[in-house]
Design a protein around this nucleic acid. Structure first.
Length: 227
DNA sequence: AAAGTGTCCAACCGCCGCAAC
DNA sequence: GGTTGCGGCGGTTGGACACTT
């Protein structure tokens, strides 16, 4: 028998079966994440806690983003790696839906050989650039949070001014060009200016990437607020 | 067609920090 | 304060598959 599928001590090792996955998913749905060493006892899995945690975190978690790393994500990985080195979990926190394992695998496959002295020279520059941008974005974020509170209270006061045909559950507030906008699905913005709802055409976006940077990569969820 | 090489990715291991006892 | 158990992290492995020679 090969490396996998061996039974050592009392724990099973090797690739997970569909049945095991189901047991683990049921366990997490019932008890939540954590207390991994209880899984064997409570879910009837012959796996140790570490193995269960790893399977959940790297594969079964519902918020995982499957599929190839995009060029945009690749850029972030390179940039953050230049700053933090092999701190994969730190890097992963900036890439929603990606695991440290995934990023580590990707970097090792694609860049381990390529990154030589030049990257060391560049890392200082990159670090300064990154820190400046981060500082700027933190300030922006702070401002937005303040604006968002104002916006929400303004919106509540002026709710009746939004045309009645717009179904509220289909709208999202977006932040763009220093203004909060309500977006009706399908393409126009309702912007709230001075407490009044204004109907304006949807501006052309240059690229998703620019928008991502514009609204802040790390706290994307903060700026898409369902009404 | 076969062998060699590269890529992808799941899963393991050892180590470390932290909290509870 | 020392020990123990657990969870998290980074390094590594190796099977499967794709691509190249």
């Amino acid at each position: 028998m090969g490396r996998w599928g061996i039974i050592e001590e009392e724990w099973r090792k090797g690739p997970w079966t569909v049945e095991e996955d189901k047991l683990l998913i049921d366990y997490v749905n019932l008890h939540g994440e954590g207390r991994w060493n209880s899984v064997a006892r409570l879910a009837g899995l012959k796996r140790n806690g570490k193995s269960c945690r790893l399977r959940w975190v790297n594969y079964l978690r519902p918020d995982l983003k499957r599929g190839q790393i995009t060029p945009y994500e690749e850029r972030i990985i390179l940039e953050l790696h230049a700053i933090w080195g092999n701190r994969w979990s730190t890097i992963a926190r900036s890439l929603p839906g990606r695991t440290d394992n995934e990023i580590k695998n990707y970097w090792r496959t694609h860049f381990k050989k390529k990154v030589k002295k030049s990257s060391i020279d560049n890392s200082k520059k990159t670090k300064v650039h990154f820190l400046k941008r981060q500082q700027f974005q933190q300030q922006q974020q702070l401002n937005r949070q303040i604006d968002m509170k104002k916006m929400m209270s303004l919106f509540e006061e002026n709710e009746n001014k939004v045309p009645s045909h717009v179904p509220k559950q289909n709208m999202t507030i977006l932040y763009q060009n220093n203004t909060f906008h309500e977006q009706e699905q399908g393409g126009f913005f309702y912007s709230m200016i001075n407490g009044y709802a204004n109907y304006v055409p949807l501006p052309e976006a240059s690229s998703n990437e620019d928008i991502m940077w514009d609204i802040g990569l790390w706290n994307l969820d903060d700026f898409n607020v369902n009404l």
